[in-house]
Write a protein that binds this DNA or RNA. Structure first.
Lengths: 333, 333
DNA sequence: GGGTGAATTGAATACGTAGTCAGTATATGG
DNA sequence: CCATATACTGACTACGTATTCAATTCACCC
């Protein structure tokens, strides 16, 4: 392995000082065209590539953004990740990706993240304790929660308006004449789940419903399949199911069709939440509330930049409306 | 933003030298239990977190592995990424994730990667020029290609045995009595596609077939849907379709069922390649050749570690066999 | 001709840690 | 009691770059 080429090597070959080489490769300070050419020639000849590590040490910024993500294999998040990566590439930022192990708190991997002195941190998965959020702030690391929020915390957050999304779906199902509507939940302690259920329940009650069926799921396909099987095997079979995620909704459709031989939407209407790509496939044609990922990513980056500009700015919760996407899994619309 | 706490601050508070603090936080050198405790107390009180940037500068290793990935939104790669992240977490390595823009060569983002002095680089997506691979080697950065390979290059590679996979599928379809077998390809210049087609074609000819239908796709769902629609609308409708990816196979199934009202596998058998999670869903029950991701990831990490141990070791292409997964999309098995 | 200012440039230093080397204290053996 | 080994510890420097500050050059003008 050849010795690493440094700016000093380039300087020597070009017959200039290391300062000059640095200036050529960082900002174009005032450099005479001739020296600039000589430096670039020398750098090219030696195969010089600036060392971002050393640069970070002096500038006190790494140009690296950390992203914490738990559910890479659920189809919604890869799309989010792709968007972030694309935008960061445009901004010439690099991305350090972290996943938390199942049942692992973000707090546990926080030290690893902080060691690398990321310029900012985006957390899409689990919760972050208030203490940790504060610790980040003390280190000058802006934290933005994506699709999660903590009340009374110092972290910014961007979130789909899940409560309103739940209301929209209650309206849709009631307007189209469904009588017996069931809910399949996500994991109990996650705001995306509780908010969707809250909006749904509130609107149901506002419109005179007093009780309805409910099963617990975990956002994944299999749990939707299983829960729908339980619901649809009952004597008082529901005529509509609202699933807290598209993933579970697809499981519910498969359970109805292949588990019980029912037709969707003729025998039972099914609604999801997220609008992942598969929801549009001919096999499913799922009616759902879309999370507007592009808007959410833009908002996240905006909050991040604001916080970098002014570290003392007050934390903000930015809600992005969900968008109802009508396809063909609800009858009577 | 508070001043960053350094090892010197800790040393001062603990009444020891910076060296001692460093020793406590790197390897446990010979440190008296009492000083260790004092250092840890002080560090805790100040909220000290070692600076990985500075550490990297002296140790000449970053503990960061770079991963280049193009198709995050195709369902196979998030699973791969998840596996890598999980293993790297166990190894206490961090992950810098890069995507190449559509139509962007890996060579274009290479400078960004090299600036950050990753300890090793895993490339799962596009091709890497031989010059770039050599440049990495000169910088002592091991490169491992995942599911891609370059002949005569200096890069290690891990790959499913796609040629053999193609043969397996030809055997399966011929053994089960299909007469008119069609192939839907992936992007033309990608080895995963050409190898699968080569194995398939070779075996078809070995067993006496001389010509068969073929359509071009791009590995994605929609192209499989469209191609299958074209194939199945012909008067000489094929009785089996081998799709170069599961994603296209799911599209083909939907095209058969929802586009043309055909039954799978009664009217047409469909086979995929990859074994992504959806292939097992009740709606599809796709027979396919599984890429053994866990084995591939293990092999990749092994090659990486070998190359880090001995930078002069000869490049290796490690083939992992595909595993035939029989479900219910092929008749007569 | 000297003064003024702008444009370039280089020397020196900081960034925060790891590791080398020499020094001190303590224990061990004869 | 001395010689020697052992266990810790601290002073110092390297890592590769950005940046400050002073110096130099040069042009220009009255």
């Amino acid at each position: 392995m050849a010795k690493r080429v440094t700016s000093i090597d380039v300087a020597t070959l070009a017959g200039v000082s290391q300062s000059t080489v640095s200036r050529v490769f960082s900002d174009m300070d005032n450099i005479s065209p001739e020296k600039r050419r000589r430096v670039l020639d020398a750098a090219n000849k030696l195969g010089y590539i600036p060392n971002a590590i050393a640069r970070s040490l002096t500038t006190q910024r790494t140009n690296i953004i950390g992203i914490v993500m738990a559910n890479l294999t659920s189809p919604f998040y890869p799309y989010v990740l792709e968007k972030f990566l694309q935008r960061f590439r445009e901004m010439e930022k690099q991305t350090l990706l972290f996943t938390s192990a199942p049942n692992q708190d973000v707090d546990d991997i926080m030290p690893h993240i902080m060691q690398h002195r990321v310029d900012a941190l985006i957390i899409t998965s689990a919760m972050l304790s208030t203490e940790m959020a504060d610790k980040c702030l003390r280190y000058g690391i802006p934290v933005i929660l994506f699709n999660r929020y903590i009340l009374n915390s110092n972290a910014n957050a961007v979130c789909t308006d899940n409560v309103e999304g739940g209301r929209i779906i209650a309206n849709l199902l009631l307007d189209s004449g469904h009588q017996n509507i069931a809910y399949i939940s996500g994991q109990p302690n996650v705001s995306t789940n509780t908010d969707r259920e809250k909006g749904f329940s509130d609107r149901m009650r506002e419109r005179g419903m007093t009780e309805w069926l409910r099963e617990e799921g975990d956002f994944f396909y299999q749990s939707g399949y299983d829960a729908a099987l339980r619901l649809l095997s009952r004597p008082d079979r529901p005529d509509a199911i609202f699933c807290a995620s598209d993933n579970m909704a697809l499981g519910a459709i498969d359970a109805a069709r292949y588990g019980l031989g029912l037709r969707v939407p003729d025998d039972v209407s099914i609604v999801g939440f997220d609008d992942m790509p598969m929801a549009a496939w001919p096999a499913y044609q799922l009616t759902t509330v879309a999370q507007q990922v592009d808007l959410m990513v833009e908002a996240t980056i905006e909050l991040m930049l604001e916080k970098l500009e002014d570290p003392d700015s007050r934390p903000i919760l930015r809600l992005i409306p969900g968008r109802l996407v009508l396809r063909n899994s609800v009858r009577g619309v």
